[in-house]
């Protein structure tokens, strides 16, 4: 395992990227990992493209600066693939995980990155619409990311969700979310 993984999140304001990055980070505690999760701050409001960051490491993290060259990029909204240069400064051989309705191959072609990065796709909108009745991509994408990351078990991702959200949501909503996270974990595909 690498000493530290640096992840960049792309989303639109209001999609819950900050919440997702914090949720992923908190899940890492269950694996005795260290982490940082912080948004890139601006004055963007609902709908604007936003960026958030996560660092996960097996040792305490001293770095206190932005992530310039991430190991992974997570894209919460397929419309951002065209709107934003999501692979900017992504490390050579790094991974991109996107909420995307097509295959990883199609995603790679769309991004024009064939062979340069590892590309993963999961249709988080479909999953969340089916399970939650609404297209909320953030928590399913944490499931998909956890799978690709390979550092945090599905069990721990699910357990952390329950701990964080069971006092905020009704039990059936929690269960639906858990199912969405699990499905994304299982359905993510890569090349």
């Amino acid at each position: 395992m690498p000493k530290m993984v640096e992840i960049r999140w792309h989303a639109r304001g209001g999609q819950g990227a900050v919440l997702a990055s914090r949720y992923l980070a908190a899940s890492a505690i269950r694996e005795n990992l260290y982490f940082q999760a912080f948004p890139q701050f601006g004055t963007e409001r609902m709908g604007a493209p936003i960026v958030a960051y996560t660092r996960i490491s097996d040792a305490p993290i001293n770095l206190r600066c932005a992530i310039e060259e991430p190991d992974m990029v997570v894209v919460l909204d397929p419309t951002l693939l065209k709107a934003v240069n999501v692979t900017a400064n992504l490390k050579e051989g790094g991974s991109i995980i996107a909420n995307y309705p097509g295959t990883p191959k199609e995603l790679a072609q769309e991004l024009n990155v064939d062979g340069k990065f590892k590309v993963y796709a999961v249709d988080a909108y479909k999953i969340s619409t089916e399970e939650l009745g609404r297209p909320i991509p953030n928590t399913p994408m944490v499931g998909a990311l956890a799978r690709v990351l390979g550092l945090i078990s599905l069990d721990n991702i699910l357990a952390e969700f329950e701990e964080q959200f069971s006092h905020r949501f009704k039990p059936e909503i929690v269960q639906k979310n858990l199912k969405a996270v699990r499905r994304a974990y299982e359905e993510v595909q890569g090349i």
């Binding site: 990055s21 914090r22 980070a25 908190a26 890492a28 505690i29 260290y34 982490f35 940082q36 999760a37 912080f38 948004p39 701050f41 993290i61 206190r64 600066c65």
Partner: peptide
């Protein structure tokens, strides 16, 4: 504490 860098960064 430094704003955002520390204030808004989630850590264990």
């Amino acid at each position: 504490l430094d704003g955002f860098v520390v204030s808004h960064n989630v850590e264990p």
